[in-house]
Design a protein around this nucleic acid. Structure first.
Length: 256
DNA sequence: ATGGTGGTTCTACCA
């Protein structure tokens, strides 16, 4: 079972790039983030003609997450629990082939001297509580998405440049580590221990040609899912295309 | 220190 996660930075601006990649790579499941689309304007037909069913949590202008699947999608939830007042479309979860899957768009948190940073940290506390419940109640758990977290110094081109950023500040990384301490595994680091392996390059400052990127798109797997992990890799191809997203897909392959 | 780019939407906001 091949599962991809990709922050597409607008599903409508990127639909041709996404279709081209899905046709080429044929993942069973694609977890998308930053749709920047409401449900009504989501390009369902473009994906359905490739054989994908689509479940989305959309929102006007910002955020928005989706699960695309060639297989039946069951038991969908569209909100991260523990705060009913949160209107931001950043979480969708469902069961496919017996695997409980989530598409996550974790808050960025910058600037850190605004309410955005405590919102990020509180969102991570909610994710922790929910992930704990998931692990206790499900065997195969796959939490993929844009975590907006640089886990370690080897996951960015210049740690000093990120020191005071919400993606790298110690509180953010501590909460990410707490997710791992629940028993979740960063699938990428099971299969790849090299530095300079990135999933995001800023549009500015020539970050892409200079490979000044960061690794912020992750798959966290339960123990049972980790034991089924055959491969995990980042596909840099889409980042080099015309009209590219600033993120590129990360893919896992599970033997189930 | 600033501005560099790109998306949504129409005036800033977000990343």
């Amino acid at each position: 079972m091949k599962i991809a996660s990709w922050n597409v930075n607008s599903v409508r601006a990127r639909v041709h790039n996404i279709v081209e990649w899905l046709e080429s790579e044929q993942p069973d499941v694609a977890l998308l983030q930053e749709l920047k689309s409401e449900d009504e304007t989501f390009p369902y037909a473009d994906f359905e003609k490739l054989g994908y069913k689509c479940e989305i949590s959309g929102q006007k202008s910002w955020n928005g997450v989706a699960i695309l699947s060639k297989h039946e999608i069951k038991d969908v939830i569209r909100k991260l629990p523990f705060d009913d007042s949160d209107e931001q479309a950043r979480y969708i979860e469902a069961t496919i082939n017996g695997v409980r899957l989530a598409s996550i768009y974790l808050p960025n948190g910058n600037p850190v001297d605004t309410e955005k940073y405590p919102y990020k940290l509180k969102w991570m506390d909610r994710l922790y509580k929910h992930a704990k419940n998931l692990i206790e109640n499900e065997k195969m758990v796959v939490l993929g998405g844009d975590y907006n977290i640089i886990p370690t110094e080897q996951d960015c081109y210049d740690p000093s440049a990120w020191a005071d950023d919400a993606l790298f500040k110690i509180e953010s990384r501590q909460k990410y580590r707490s997710l791992l301490n629940l028993g979740l595994t960063d699938a990428f680091r099971v299969k790849n221990d090299k530095a300079e392996q990135y999933s995001f390059w800023d549009y500015q400052r020539g970050a892409w040609p200079k490979n000044e990127g960061i690794r912020i798109d992750h798959f966290l797997l339960s123990a049972q899912a980790t034991d089924c992990l055959e491969n995990c890799y980042i596909d840099k191809g889409p980042r080099a295309k015309e009209k590219a997203s600033d993120h590129t897909p990360i893919i896992i392959e599970l033997n189930i």
